[in-house]
Nucleic acid binder design. Structure first.
Length: 466
RNA sequence: GUCUCCUUCGUCUAGGGGUCUAGGACACCGCCCUUUCACGGCGGCAACACGGGUUCAAAUCCCGUAGGAGACGCCA
């Protein structure tokens, strides 16, 4: 039987980075096994689901080159089917109507909590002999109360629980809508899902779901519960840890290949390999190598990987991506200059945002000067800059990097100062800060006129200030 | 509280009885390169949670303990 897996996100919030990993693992598993990767949007909570979130799910998957097979299933369109299954189950004796009101249940729950016991539905209506007038009943599963249930989990191994720990879960709410537990089982069955790979927060739900499969007389899929991603403090990754949505990472300037590679290595490994391409991932991926222990999200390692993939990308494609982060129009001439400086700025960038930022030195004069520049703006430096301007005038255009470099070195020797003194003051004048690619490279790219203009502005600014 | 799962450097991990004085990567520190910052190169620091077994031999197998996490909804 060929493999069919699914990714079933709920559009009640922005797609969590942990969900993205679940999608990735499912996709890799399907592609590795030559099976199908299906998508199902679990939008039954109409109050909290939004079209915007649904759109983002598609968008992020496409961004990560995670393609799905067949048409995405919209869960809310299948409610009638879920309902039918629940009602059939009542007919076959696998489920029953329960007339206990939420208020009654709340009282019992409170009492259980008070006496220090864990709450479980007590089965008041289980025999079907109780009907309360004027109450819309729910449908509950008549689950096994003796024996044990074992899930042979592909990641976690065999996990067994006493059936007495489980209670009769609600399948259909009093308003006639199906619960999550029912919907997942019915949909997975109807979609022919063979392997359910999801976060291990669902592991204990699995026992309940298995009971539903059995009550319906359906064969169960295989399960693989992968550990969740935690924040740096070891708790479930959440908003307070910073970026949690996949969209956030895109906006922070991370490349899709970075995200895939990083997420894959979180909890899964292939020997000592760190840099893994998508095709290698497909070739190597297996559930057996997924670790059982949860992994913490490490932003530093993500950045390092991103820096690696930025260097890997060709200039054209990275420029396209950078444009999302430019806060101004970039004309063809400017584009040309950025392209010339690309290699230099790629080496320094951790994110595409860094890259877009760094590219600005080729595009425009500094908007303001960092305080640090003052160290290289003493009278001596200003005088030296005057000389630099004179010196540059003598060099014919187009001005070469080595030429300026040699000329400035000569100037340094002549004035008996270290090269760093002149280079840094030029840097301050050209960039407004003391960190940038080679100043000689910048001069050769932006040209004589622009160099002169920027240095003059700097001199003017620093003279009037002092 | 009950149930379930987890536990190797700060972090991600390799390892599946002897090849482990525990390997790699990120981070950190130092040196080299150098006009700054990076990049790159070289080197360093740093871990088998604890306690009992089993065995000639345990990071590896078993049992406890401790710690952590998740699940216990008419949410998904």
């Amino acid at each position: 039987m060929s493999v069919r897996v699914r990714f079933a996100p709920s559009p009640t919030g922005v797609l969590h980075i942990g969900s993205v990993r679940t999608a990735l693992f499912n996709w890799l598993f399907a592609r590795h096994n030559g099976g199908k990767f299906l998508l199902r949007i679990e939008d039954t909570d109409k109050m909290r689901s939004t079209d915007e979130n649904t759109k983002l799910i598609f968008e992020i998957l496409e961004w990560l080159s995670i393609d799905w097979d067949e048409e995405a299933v919209i869960q809310s369109e299948r409610i009638a089917k879920h309902k039918e299954v629940a009602e059939n189950l009542v007919l076959t004796g696998g489920a029953y109507y329960c007339y206990c009101s939420p208020e009654e249940l709340a009282v019992k729950k409170e009492a259980a909590l008070k006496s220090g016991k864990s709450y479980k539905y007590d089965g008041t209506c289980r025999n079907g002999d109780r009907i309360a007038e004027g109450v819309n009943p729910v449908i509950r599963l008549k689950s096994e109360i003796t024996g044990t249930t074992t899930v042979r989990d592909l990641v976690q191994g065999d996990v067994t629980v006493e059936n007495s720990q489980l209670d009769d879960l609600v399948l259909l709410r009093s308003d006639g809508t199906p619960t999550y537990m029912l919907s997942v089982v019915v949909d997975d069955h109807d979609m022919g899902v063979t392997h359910v790979i999801r976060g291990d927060d669902h592991l204990t739900n699995t026992f309940r779901q298995v009971q539903i499969y059995r009550a319906c007389g359906w064969s169960e899929p295989q399960f693989g519960h992968i550990p969740l991603i935690y924040g740096p403090d070891g708790a479930k990754l959440s908003k307070r840890h910073g970026a949690v949505s996949a969209v956030d990472y895109r906006e922070l300037g991370y490349l899709p290949e970075t995200i895939s590679n990083y997420l894959l290595r979180l909890g899964w490994s292939h020997g000592d390999d760190e840099i893994i391409s998508q095709s290698q991932a497909i070739e190597w991926f297996d559930l057996a190598s997924v670790g059982k222990s949860p992994a913490r999200f490490d932003m530093k390692k993500l950045q390092n990987l991103n820096a690696h993939y930025i260097k890997q990308r060709d200039n054209e494609s990275i420029f396209e991506y950078m444009q999302l982060f430019f806060r101004r129009e970039v004309d063809d001439a400017q584009r040309e200059m950025i392209m010339q400086g690309m290699q230099a700025i790629k080496e320094r960038a951790k994110t595409v945002v860094d890259l877009a930022d760094a590219a600005m030195v080729y595009v425009r004069a500094p908007i303001e000067y960092d305080d640090a520049c003052n160290t290289y703006a003493t009278k001596m430096h200003i005088d030296l800059l005057e000389e630099v301007i004179g010196m540059i005038k003598d060099i014919p255009e187009p001005i070469g990097e080595d030429e300026v470099c040699n000329a400035v070195k000569e100037l340094a020797t002549k004035n008996n100062v270290k090269l760093v003194e002149i280079a840094q003051s030029i840097r301050g004048a050209l960039c407004g800060k003391l960190v940038s690619p080679s100043v000689f490279q910048i001069i050769s790219i932006i040209g004589k006129k622009e160099t002169e203009k920027r240095i003059n502005s700097f001199i003017h600014e620093k003279r009037t200030n002092s």
